[in-house]
Design a protein around this nucleic acid. Structure first.
Length: 212
DNA sequence: TTATGGTGCGTTTGAGCGGG
DNA sequence: CCCGCTCAAACGCACCATAA
């Protein structure tokens, strides 16, 4: 918005209302599915022109939008229209229009934990969250659980008693009351946990000031 | 000792932005 | 309009601590 961001910023600063730039663009597109231009979307989504253009290119290559008639006159402004409505969530695409697999692991773990209900360790979570398309590694599950436990999304039911040959891993349990939405909480580089559903940082390394 | 869990660091990939 | 650079998040590996 008013911030003259020249490059990428941490998630909590880049997200506006918990929505990324592409999400806002996608919503603007769906609002004007009949016909829209680059500037139209960029203005409505409060996004940078170049960034909007990049996403429109990806959407076009992915077949989500189509180029319609050009603007009358000498302007080179393209008129797009929505070709494939993928729902509320903005399609995550690479620059070539290919679907993005990154981030799916956490999304699947987040969803799996909410469904399973009982207690589990990281290996069980990794196995259950893995699909034929996206495999969730035990390491990823372990790391994700650690941060979710700090943020209070999961509770340690049984501490990892014993290390060694007969070691038992920590057993966690998901707190249903902490389910904030479909978007999985993300672990930021600063070792803090940001919840895109709530649109704010829910845990930081030192201060645990916030409590439901 | 060895094996296993936990924690930290490095690499890879995607997203934003500017220039040609 | 297309290509490249930069930065942050996700993924993965390596090291450390500890119990059998």
């Amino acid at each position: 918005m008013a911030a003259p961001h020249r490059t990428r910023q941490p998630a909590e600063l880049e997200m506006i209302g918990g929505k990324g730039t592409r999400q806002r663009c996608w919503e603007a597109i769906r609002a004007r599915r009949d016909g829209f231009t680059l500037l139209d979307i960029a203005h409505k989504a409060a996004a940078d022109i170049a960034t909007t253009k990049t996403y429109l290119q990806a959407l076009e290559k992915g077949g989500f939008i189509e180029v319609g008639n050009r603007e009358r006159g000498g302007h080179d402004e393209k008129h797009y229209r929505l070709a494939k409505d993928n729902g509320l969530e903005a399609p995550r695409l690479t620059r070539d229009g290919q679907p993005v697999t990154q981030g799916r692991a956490q999304e699947q773990m987040w969803r799996t934990m909410r469904i399973m209900g009982g207690d589990f360790n990281y290996q069980e979570l990794a196995a259950l969250a893995s699909t034929s398309e996206v495999a969730v590694s035990p390491v990823a599950a372990r790391d994700y659980l650690k941060h979710l436990a700090h943020a209070g999304y999961v509770t340690v039911v049984a501490q990892g008693k014993g290390r060694g040959a007969g070691g038992v891993a920590n057993r966690y349990r998901f707190n249903p009351g902490r389910y904030s939405g479909p978007r999985p909480p993300m672990v930021q580089r600063t070792k803090s946990v940001y919840d895109p559903n709530l649109g704010r940082v829910v845990w930081q390394e030192e201060a645990d000031h916030d409590d439901l």
